[in-house]
Amino acid sequence: METFTGIPTAASGFYAELEDNNNRDWWLAHKDTYDDAVRRPLEALLDGLAPVFGPAKLFRPYRDVRFSPDKSPYKTAQGAFVSNHEGVGFYLQVSADGLLVGGGFHSSSPAQLARFRTAVDAPASGGALARIVETLSGSGFSVDGQELKNVPRGFPRDHPRGELLKHKTLSASMHLGQPEWMDTAHAKDEVARHWEQLRPLVDWTIRYAAP
């Protein structure tokens, strides 16, 4: 295991150039930069955070272009998902814009969605989620996810938590940009601090609406 010393600023520079040169020849010519500035630092960071937050999946850098009109072969950001429960956990992304952290659940089966709506409807669990979301919003996180246009059938249109009931997935994220600690070992503590802010949302989902 490599010792984590920070995420090099070259990581953002790599993706800024990739946005203008998204082709195989450029990628192969700069693969060493991807390995040195993106892949290995993130692997070291995620290994260090795993005992507290769970195992990580570092997403492949290659796009699935089979059904997309955009045939650019490479993703213009490196993402990672950290979780002990399928589809529920913490997110980290590096791109030309710098760092982004997030957490929540990004997919739902019909059964999971039914559990989620039941929990949102219930005053105790639903009220707890509303307070979590309010706290995150007040702390600078953007709360989003896949949503219906209207409150789902079976619930009153004026439900006190109608906006939450519209959600099919629910997550919160924050763009951190390129803070001065990004290329230092302190980045591990900062990512952990933001993920701890997101833990109530993750824990609520695991308790009431796990897959």
Rank of each mutant, 00 (worst) to 15 (best):
E43Q: 13
H30Y: 10
D97G: 11
E19H: 05
L49P: 08
L129S: 09
A114S: 09
A122D: 15
G103P: 10
L129D: 14
N21E: 04
A114Q: 13
F67Y: 15
Q78M: 08
L46N: 07
F141Y: 08
I7D: 07
S137R: 15
P211V: 04
M182N: 03
T169A: 02
I132E: 11
L28Y: 11
A130F: 03
L92F: 14
P211D: 09
D36M: 12
L129A: 12
G13H: 02
E134P: 00
D183A: 13
G54A: 10
D144N: 11
S108T: 15
D32R: 15
R117S: 04
D25E: 14
S83T: 10
Q146A: 09
K31R: 15
A80S: 06
L42Y: 05
V143R: 04
H106G: 12
R24Y: 03
R115D: 13
F81W: 03
T9Y: 11
G154W: 05
I206F: 00
L165Y: 02
R24F: 01
S107I: 08
S125T: 15
G98D: 02
L129T: 14
G140M: 00
P8F: 02
R207V: 08
H175E: 12
R153H: 15
G89A: 06
D158C: 07
T9D: 07
L58T: 13
D97M: 00
G126M: 09
L58I: 15
E163H: 10
E180C: 02
L176S: 04
S72F: 08
P123E: 12
F90P: 03
V65I: 15
T33Q: 13
L99N: 01
P156K: 07
N22W: 01
K149D: 13
H106Y: 14
G154D: 09
M1I: 01
Q93T: 10
D183W: 00
T76Q: 12
V202T: 13
S173A: 05
L45V: 11
L201H: 06
L46P: 05
V82P: 06
Y208Q: 15
H159N: 02
T135G: 10
A37F: 05
G177Q: 02
F59Y: 15
Y34R: 05
R117Q: 03
V120T: 12
P55Y: 00
D20T: 03
V191F: 07
H159M: 03
L148H: 08
E147I: 06
D47G: 04
F67W: 10
V65A: 08
I132V: 14
L201C: 00
R117V: 02
L129H: 13
N150P: 00
H167I: 02
F81L: 02
A80V: 05
G54L: 11
A10D: 15
H85I: 12
S95P: 05
W195R: 04
K71E: 09
L42V: 00
L49D: 11
F90R: 05
R66K: 01
V52C: 06
P51W: 00
K149M: 08
L92E: 09
A37Q: 01
A10E: 15
G103R: 11
S142K: 14
G104W: 01
G89H: 01
E190A: 04
G127W: 10
F67A: 13
S95M: 10
G154A: 02
V191L: 01
P73M: 07
A124S: 07
G145S: 09
D144S: 13
S139K: 09
N21D: 07
E163S: 13
T9H: 11
L201E: 00
P51H: 05
S95H: 08
A80Y: 01
D36H: 04
